[in-house]
Design a protein around this nucleic acid. Structure first.
Length: 459
RNA sequence: UCCUCAGUAGCUCAGCGGUAGAGCGGUCGGCUGUUAACCGAUUAGUCGCAGGUUCGAAUCCUGCCUGAGGAGCCA
């Protein structure tokens, strides 16, 4: 039996004279008078394996007719040093089996560049392109890197619920979960509903992660998150994946250290695992991709307090559309100025005014600011948002009251402060934003296989 | 949700008052090593939808739908 091998492995280690068998999809075919070339891709590698088809193949004429772009094939043959330029090794086919044809008159992927907008309309096929293929290999590497990073540090991966009954984690709009018939008359009677109360898709696993951190010290979540906001931008999704570490016995400084070490680790891991894909992005998508990665890995992140950031923004000559004033939130243009123009690297902004941050963030001694931190990345803005959590029961109760939060629903969250409370901190990282940042892809819809955005949940 | 721009052949676009055009793709033919192959021929369209103005609308006007960029919200 001839060994069935991945194309990535053949392109890296294949030697002339070896008998091999591959399986994959035809990316392109070039017919000449005496013979033909076809390139096959199996998703394992950016480059294709060039296969030489000679007339002595059984059914040569018929085969050429049916070996169209998109067809699925199994090729048996022998590796050989390539006579042409462009690749070291190629395969001389002795047997070609076609699993499924792809009619060239209707198959939407052509041997040419397609716009990402068009590719989004064929979400089921677009992963067969060079760029999306590279994106999803990098996405996968990021995912592995994240688990490996936390495992090395003794964090437990915890699975927080996707369905939640608390709607008070943030002001964000939630998707309702119900088993009631929307046309029935009892539609609003939640006592008749599956959970006996209103239920939603989670907007964050943080509160549950805090509970688990109070048992295991260091934990993280990595799972889907849902926001029903009508956001139409290149960096928002209605369904996205979020990474949320939570550490007991940890303050804001430790939180920032973790965030920085985390990003450095993931970038290093991906550069090592997917060098060809990263070079591809650097060449074709954004020529600062490799420089950015290098910058992340080798330079310390800038750390600046909100108060100092405001002072810096007030001093600059740059004209901003929105006002800069202590107490107001930083606008996109301000964040972009800080990370992209002024520091030209990720910036961690800390200690925001109480009024613009969530109730659970720890009140600083000045009583005007909270121990929050945002990591701002060039181009995409906020990639991480985190904080030291308020561990003092009385302060937390007061802040919830001021924020108009119903304490009844979060009785268990307050219990964590009643019984064995400890200083703790954590952050949330938008996984797709990380992949976007890493690959230089302009639109977040192109770094998740099947994006969900307003008016779009196809595939 | 707001602002701006755009929807013309399978794809990318040109045409901007006189009833449709290019490149790529597809098809057919040629080419003994190609690699976004090349050369020749050929194929291809309710000009987003619905109204209106006009002798005449892809072109002007109104509404709607869809997409993109930016903003807000955030990760």
């Amino acid at each position: 039996m001839t060994e069935n091998r991945r194309i990535a492995e053949i392109l890296r280690n294949g030697k002339p004279e070896e008998s091999v068998k591959i399986q994959g999809w035809v990316r392109t075919k070039r017919e000449l008078k005496g013979f033909a070339f076809m390139e096959v891709n199996d998703g394992s590698y950016l480059a294709n394996l060039q296969v030489v088809l000679e007339p002595k193949l059984p059914n040569y004429e018929q085969l050429l007719k049916h070996l169209n772009v998109g067809a699925s094939v199994e090729v048996t043959g022998v590796l050989a040093e390539s006579q042409g330029k462009g690749q070291q090794i190629e395969m001389k086919a002795s047997l070609v089996k076609i699993y499924g044809e792809a009619n060239p008159e209707t198959y939407p992927l052509q041997k040419k560049r397609h716009s990402f907008e068009f590719l989004r309309t064929i979400g089921h096929l677009r992963s067969r392109t060079n760029t999306l293929g590279a994106v999803f290999r990098v996405r996968n590497a990021c995912s592995s890197a994240i688990h490996q990073f936390f495992r090395e540090r003794g964090f437990l991966w915890i699975h927080t619920p996707i369905i939640t009954t608390s709607d008070c984690e943030g002001a964000g709009e939630l998707f309702t979960v119900t088993s009631l018939d929307p046309t029935a008359s009892n539609q609003q009677d939640y006592s008749q509903d599956f959970f006996g109360s209103p239920a939603y898709l989670t907007v964050s696993g943080q509160l549950e992660a805090e509970a688990m951190a109070m048992a295991f010290r260091d934990v993280y979540t990595f799972g889907p998150t849902f926001r029903a906001e009508n956001s139409n931008t290149s960096r928002h999704l209605a369904e996205f994946w979020m990474v949320e570490p939570e550490m007991a016995f940890c303050d804001l400084g430790g939180d920032m250290d973790l965030a920085e070490a985390f990003l450095k680790y993931v970038f290093s891991f991906v550069l090592e695992t997917c060098p060809e894909d990263m070079e591809f992005f650097n060449k074709r998508m954004d020529q600062s991709v490799l420089a950015t990665a290098d910058n992340i890995i080798n330079n310390e992140f800038e750390r600046i307090s909100y108060t100092d950031a405001i002072a810096l923004l007030e001093k600059t000559n740059r004209k901003f559309q929105y006002p800069v004033e202590w107490g107001l939130d930083l606008q996109s243009e301000h964040e972009r100025y800080l990370s992209q123009d002024y520091f030209q690297k990720p910036v961690i902004v800390t200690d925001y005014p109480t009024g613009i941050k969530a109730f659970y963030m720890r009140l600083n001694d000045d009583a005007k600011t909270v121990a929050a931190m945002d990591v701002l990345a060039p181009k995409i803005g906020e990639i991480i948002g985190g904080a030291q959590r308020e561990e003092r029961l009385d302060v937390l109760e007061r802040r919830m009251h001021e924020a108009g939060m119903p304490a009844d629903d979060l009785w268990w969250y307050l219990d964590l402060r009643r019984y064995g409370t400890v200083p703790h901190a954590g952050f949330g990282l938008g996984f797709e934003r990380l992949v976007q940042f890493m690959t230089g892809m302009d639109n977040i819809r192109d770094v998740i296989p099947f994006p969900r955005t307003p008016l779009n949940a196809e595939f």
